[in-house]
Each structure stands twice: as structure tokens, then as C-alpha cells.
């Protein structure tokens, strides 16, 4: 069972969190022109590496904050976690 360090609450077991997928996706700004393919990329295409993956998690049974987790998808090792506005090392 993963142990995830919520940047607000500290280390907690996986069962307190829900997953939020690829954190590198950037939603195009509202009201700006976006091409069909750019939009398609945003809605459907995912970074899906075997190895280091930057992803979102939501501390759903805790502080209810979304945050970033830098995790290895091959080993499940968590390299670091950070708040949304923090740069991940």
C-alpha cells in the first residue's frame, strides 16, 4: 500500500487519497483560441511513461487538497510530493 506524503498533512496511507492522473496536462486558458488538435491532446492524450511520472492526487479523506506526486510507475517509489504551486525537484 502506497504511503503518500500530503504536503499539508504529512504521510498517510493510500486509502485516504484519490488519484487524479497526469499532472503535466495544462488546461488551455478559458476564452482563448485552441486548435482542434491541441484540444484533443488536452482532453485525451496522456503522458504515460514507464518510470518517473508527475501526477495529481487528492487528499479526499483528509484536507481535500489536490497536490502533485512525483512517482515511479515501474517501482511505485515516490520521489517527492509538492503543493500545486511548488516546483517539483
Amino acid at each position: 500500500m502506497l504511503e503518500i506524503k500530503c504536503p499539508y498533512c504529512g504521510k498517510r496511507s493510500q486509502i485516504e487519497f484519490s488519484y487524479g492522473g497526469d499532472a503535466k496536462l495544462e488546461r488551455p486558458k478559458l476564452g482563448t483560441e485552441v486548435s482542434d488538435s491541441e484540444w484533443n491532446e488536452f482532453v485525451y492524450y496522456r503522458n504515460n511513461p514507464r518510470g518517473e511520472h508527475l501526477e495529481l492526487w487528492h487528499h479526499i479523506s483528509g484536507c481535500r487538497q489536490w497536490f502533485k506526486v512525483f512517482r515511479n510507475t515501474a517501482t511505485h517509489e515516490i520521489l517527492s510530493t509538492s503543493k500545486i504551486d511548488e516546483k517539483i525537484k
Binding site: S18, G20, L56, H58, I60, R64, Q65, W66
Partner: peptide, 13 residues
């Protein structure tokens, strides 16, 4: 609720 929190915290902080 998660949807709103996502947009508030991640997309439109």
C-alpha cells in the same frame, strides 16, 4: 465537489 476543488486548486488557483 472533487471537480470544483480540482478547478479551484489546480487550474484556477
Amino acid at each position: 465537489l472533487s471537480h470544483l476543488e480540482y478547478y479551484l486548486q489546480v487550474v484556477w488557483p
